[in-house]
Design a protein around this nucleic acid. Sequence first.
DNA 1: TCCGATATGCGGTCAAGCGCAACAAATTCG
DNA 2: CGAATTTGTTGCGCTTGACCGCATATCGGA
Lengths: 391, 391
Amino acid sequence: MNDRGGTFDGVHRRNLSKVLRLVHLEGAMSRARLTGLTGLNRSTVATLVAELVELGLTVEQPPDPTNRVGRPSPVVAADPHVLALAVNPEVDAITMAAVGLDGRIPIRERIEVDRLPSPEETADLVAATRDRWMAGELRRARLIGVGLAVPGLVRASDGLVRWAPHLEWTDAPLRALVEEATGLPAAVGNDASFGAHAEHLFGAGRGVDDLVYLNGGASGIGGGLVVHGRLVGGTGGYAGEFGQNRPGIADPADRRADGGVLEDEVSRARLLEVAGLASADEPSLAAALAASKAPEAAAELARQRRILATALGNAINVLNPSLVVLGGFLATVAESDPADLEQAVGAQTVAAAFEEVSIRVAALGEDRLMIGAAEAALSPLLADPLSATRD
Amino acid sequence: MNDRGGTFDGVHRRNLSKVLRLVHLEGAMSRARLTGLTGLNRSTVATLVAELVELGLTVEQPPDPTNRVGRPSPVVAADPHVLALAVNPEVDAITMAAVGLDGRIPIRERIEVDRLPSPEETADLVAATRDRWMAGELRRARLIGVGLAVPGLVRASDGLVRWAPHLEWTDAPLRALVEEATGLPAAVGNDASFGAHAEHLFGAGRGVDDLVYLNGGASGIGGGLVVHGRLVGGTGGYAGEFGQNRPGIADPADRRADGGVLEDEVSRARLLEVAGLASADEPSLAAALAASKAPEAAAELARQRRILATALGNAINVLNPSLVVLGGFLATVAESDPADLEQAVGAQTVAAAFEEVSIRVAALGEDRLMIGAAEAALSPLLADPLSATRD
DNA sequence: TCCGATATGCGGTCAAGCGCAACAAATTCG
DNA sequence: CGAATTTGTTGCGCTTGACCGCATATCGGA
């Protein structure tokens, strides 16, 4: 209840946040447009923008030469020198990027590792890379924080990685380790949740307030939800574990794993197998499956579509989203026959809910996790720009 | 974006709302406690309370003789004369009640009908009952609106009942009909969603921000979700249709309906059958099942527990709630062996999510729907008390 | 029974934020 | 080149809540 929303100070902070969020999410825009979107007075917006410039969070640029009547309005943009680090530790490599408040990614690096990285090594690597970048490409940068997208269960309250099976981490205090090593505030979260957030803000789910996101990776199926325009964390932050669900399987012949969960039945490994590949990136797998003449390939895709349809149907009945976004190999499964998938989903959902939902493929590519992780790191700044008093 | 939160007027309105909501939800409390809970200044709270009294929404009472040091603080309470009508049309009867802003229910009536009521008849009956009550028991009352809990799919945007199978209503413009007949603003919603809201605000889910509610009725299973402390509606308002989900059924022998949905497998009718009853209210059914020596009764309960456990597991994995509330005959199923149900849920959920969830039985009785419907009718007033300018 | 401690209410003063209105500036159109 | 249009800028007034000092009410202990 103590959200300070009632105080005057609160009003000002909220308005600053509103303006900064707009230029962050919608990109550079004129001051006039800001007045329109915020509903605030021209003079108020002028004050707010001036304060944000003073804080070093936005920059004002000369007006765009739009051929319209009237005095041109200066363009307000997020300061590209304000950056967050994004990190995604995986089995074979640690991917890092710097993501600007303007949404651009000036630098990005995939650091291969020859054995599973430990949480401590990860933290040290982040710090080392930060130092290297700050001495070089990011000389003029101002780092706000670090966001880490981890393939596993992360406790939201303290950034403890409860369990990351593929990295073989258990109860790793990643947030504390990274904050210790870098001196920057860190945000740790589940990779799929961050992906969902990124798709919601910048991808296929832009402007959609209720969506379900499912991502198929090499190691399983993760996901995230957006309800009322907000990413759902749940009590602990573990929400979105669609892969561990048990959807109904109408035809017993479709079952592959006894008592198995969704990610045992709908799996990338099975697709690789019928495609006759040992490993492949997503486009090659999709191409191989499309080119395959073998009947097993089509049959396996159809089987996975059927089971996926039930899982999606369950989610749609309960959440009544306006959009379902599929990423990773689930996009491949969906695109193998979109009409069939849609028909199967429709047959298993309440008609009214099905009318309003559309199923789409994720729009952001590899950058999804980087953007989502950076967003988590930037979120305190966006919520309260005054917290970024410059030193 | 135009929530007027940035303006001063907005602050005042929000603060009024905050205070009114507190006395509505938490009951009467001292002005001193209000200052503490809102975080506002004493003088501010004094102004706000005075304004609410002026608006006729709250009353100030002499201080409670609490045996505490210091000057006693006047007690602020919701005005019991401010009321909302709650209506629940069902196959055999239409139940109506008047629910006060103070949470009390001064009057309640079950009006039996000998054939299915039409939407028009329902609206007329509401108007007639309102008139009768206003001439009698509710002479001094001030009615704010009508809330209707309908057993079916309701489009939130315009209160259109898309489909209420048991009432045999299709695309009934109930909100418009009731507003026309009564001249009062009406709120229409799904009965289970309203039940979920009521349990969240006043029942087993008090103070819990993330919960899942499932209710088992004679005609099926409905539910509702609360995420981030808010009832989830989804895009159209159809969220919560757990009964139409297809949970995995590990043992094919457990399946009763081919390609059936949850409410075909877990159903009150099957319980009545094994209990050897034609019809019964909930306590009698529970008693009959507990007393039954027949092995089929225990077996059927166990079977329904297994399937329910999978459905709950799916919801818990996805939403990571801190509480699952079971109502209606699902409470009977759960209480037939709580430990068994819990164990089965635990076996099908992500460990971290299971740690944080507890499964409880609904706390509110018959009043659940009335309270939930009234809450929906009162919600515009609670959100903006100034909208209730007295005439 | 009285007095100090504690807790709260009340009124006045002050600073801050925002809306408003008037004016100034920049651009397009005829 | 002037009218029309749109927007930035400036100063003013209103509203609001924080802060301060004082009054008031109750309790506990001397």
